[in-house]
């Protein structure tokens, strides 16, 4: 990763995350199809909802005809952490037009957010919408295309899990977390590691009481508060 914030650089930087979108997108397409959703419904879900775990939960809830309100509320809760990510990225684009802000925010994902945080460490903590648009757009198109292929080919293509493709997204988060911790200069290394350990322990405890997606949101908020508390004692 370099310090360039151009479209070209955005497409180049997003490449490693594409495997994750392909693996999970294929899996989503296949599962939607086997749950008796049409190809159109699967692709529309990827284009309109555009949130990995929320889409899987939607498919399972819609398949058993859960009430509409419950489906929408679940998707909103699963995606609630996006609000935290958007709020973290937004100040970096504050000087750009409202249109650039809205379009950049519309396609922000866990992956492009994490990539953006890593990019900041290389680009002097600045951001430009061109770079983010390129990364976002590539991710969005690959996600929709993988869904389409998964839903059309269905059982014809080998299960992406067997190929290890489902782990691509986890591997990417390992990489982005490690690179974030070793290159981010805004907080000392030891504090970042401390917060990571705190959040990890918290996740185990919280998942005793709530599903993973809610635990992610709660652990992130508590982890940030922990970071602030530690900073008070510096």
């Amino acid at each position: 990763m370099d310090d360039e914030l151009t479209w070209r650089s955005g497409f180049k930087d997003v490449l490693p995350t594409v495997f994750g979108y392909i693996g999970i997108g294929l899996a989503f397409g296949i599962i939607a199809k086997t749950s008796r959703f049409s190809v159109l419904a699967a692709v529309l879900m990827s284009l309109i909802v555009y949130g990995g775990s929320a889409q899987f939960v939607m498919v399972s809830m819609l398949a058993v005809h859960s009430p509409l309100g419950a489906v929408v509320l679940s998707s909103a809760l699963i995606n609630a952490r996006m609000g935290l990510m958007s709020m973290t990225v937004a100040p970096l684009l504050q000087r750009e037009s409202l249109f650039q802000n809205i379009t950049a925010g519309s396609l922000l994902t866990d992956e492009t957010f994490a990539l953006t945080m890593n990019k900041l460490n290389h680009a002097g903590r600045t951001l430009h919408s061109s770079w983010l648009h390129a990364a976002n757009l590539a991710a969005y198109l690959v996600w929709a295309l993988a869904t389409l292929v998964g839903a059309m080919a269905g059982q014809l293509i080998p299960d992406p899990d067997v190929l290890g493709l489902d782990f691509a997204v986890v591997a990417m988060f390992i990489g982005l977390l490690y690179l974030q911790v070793i290159t981010d200069r805004t907080h000392p290394l030891v504090k970042q590691v401390g917060i990571a350990v705190f959040v990890a322990v918290l996740m185990v405890i919280l998942m005793r009481f709530m599903a993973g997606n809610l635990a992610i949101l709660a652990a992130t908020v508590l982890g940030c508060l922990f970071g602030m508390a530690v900073s008070r004692h510096d």
């Binding site: 994490a114 986890v170 988060f173 907080h187 970042q192 652990a219």
Partner: peptide, 27 residues
């Protein structure tokens, strides 16, 4: 607060992938 979001949320997302939720039990 937001300056801690990257490390906190990436850790949380990663650890979630290592655990399986079992209602009423430890993961």
């Amino acid at each position: 607060f937001l300056s801690f979001v990257p490390v906190a949320i990436l850790t949380a997302i990663y650890v979630e992938s290592l655990l399986t939720y079992r209602p009423g039990q430890w993961p």
